[in-house]
Nucleic acid binder design. Structure first.
Lengths: 218, 218
DNA sequence: ATAATTTTTTAGACAAGTCTAAATTTTAAT
DNA sequence: ATTAAAATTTAGACTTGTCTAAAAAATTAT
């Protein structure tokens, strides 16, 4: 039995860890969940006890396979309910979040399976975020160059085409690493330059950069 | 802010007190909620503090107007969700309760208003129980048992008294569902059996069946 | 490399909701 | 009207999830 609170922590860890890959700091979780670091430590211990996260003191946490599945199931439920609220109950896209935060914790596999069918197996929620399947898989998004993205799209850095040390140093300097989430804020047509948002920072890049960075669309 | 637990207590008190009129004993609540009398006393104090019940030590509790409205709102939500589960998500009558017990606590006035409209303002849940309006008023129901009808009368199936899965499966097998129109073709006095017309079919039933099917005379 | 700062954890506390066991009040029985 | 039985409440404890304040570890800066 996973409690509401535990589900919320797992969801937060999932989001902070870019789909459960990297490990997440106590403070990051506390900030995201608007709670205290000490509360996070307490909860992490419980999650660890239940084998939902891997945890070593002072080393941050990461989701176990079981924790990841729990998190994606909650996200799946949240997004399916959002579709329901918008498509069937005439909610506007900005009203759904609060209610979906409650509905996502309802426990019934049949409920969510039937809801999925009733909504005709939607692939994205009203905010455009993808809805994972029952196994927690998001539809395969393939490797592409950053330059291929359109304005507003978000992606994850998964590699470089040019692996010269100059380029790598450039990336390092601008805090772009493997797993970094990059959002394309704007894109100029005439020189193919872009403005990116990386964490809280804004960065302008040339086409030489965007043509040499492999990303995975979100 | 009323908690899930408080809502469950108010609902129990409402049901035990026949629509909030008479006062209810601690033990009766404990028995219905499958909890201990001491826990009930503790909770009653909290509810009394919040002016949801009137309470004098050793004298039992009764709902205040505010408590009654909270209780009927929960019952309204429960029953609307049951209709949703059966009508839209293909749940059978006997599967809905557990899930509705969770859904009834979701807090959103808009959600329940829109759900009501989406379901086209149902007056009864799948068990034939009436759905109160927003003010907590139940529509005067002419609900009766099929066995009370005379030969030649027609009615609409609105619910079951016996909700065992055996009975529900029997009904299912013979194409009797919510909203099914039933005509009493003949009625035997000696064993109270009946012959019904359902759609184009004719069906003979025993008094065990007619005594457990709620209908609304047409 | 040591000191200063930040992050994380621990210790101890609190509210909600529950429990057991004991005390108190009410009700029923003689 | 007393006594026995039943119902109810109190007292003290436990769990979950949170907090503050202090201690410990890790990181950063000098």
């Amino acid at each position: 039995m996973v409690t509401f609170s535990e589900e919320n922590y797992l969801k937060a860890i999932y989001h902070l860890s870019k789909h459960g890959s990297v490990s997440v700091s106590t403070n990051a979780i506390a900030q995201r969940m608007d709670t205290k670091a000490s509360s996070v430590t307490d909860m992490i211990k419980k999650l660890s006890e239940k084998d939902l996260v891997d945890y070593k003191k002072y080393q941050g946490v990461s989701l176990t396979e079981s924790g990841r599945l729990t998190a994606t199931t909650v996200i799946r439920k949240h997004r399916l309910w959002e579709v329901f609220l918008v498509d069937k109950l005439n909610f506007s896209w900005d009203e759904v979040h609060e209610v979906a935060e409650q509905l996502e914790h309802i426990k019934s596999e049949k409920l969510i399976d039937q809801l999925d069918a009733f909504l005709e197996f939607p692939t994205h929620d009203p905010h455009g975020d993808p809805i994972p399947d029952k196994q927690g898989n998001f539809k395969k998004t393939e490797k592409m160059l950053l330059s291929q993205l359109a304005e507003g799209e978000t992606c994850i850095c998964i590699g470089v085409k040019d692996s010269s040390s100059e380029f790598l140093q450039y990336l390092d300097k601008h805090q772009i690493a493997l797993g970094t989430i990059i959002k394309v804020v704007s894109k100029e047509t005439f020189d193919e330059s872009m403005t990116l948002q990386i964490n809280a920072e804004v960065l302008a890049i040339s086409k030489e950069v965007s043509n040499n960075l492999f990303v995975k669309a979100n």
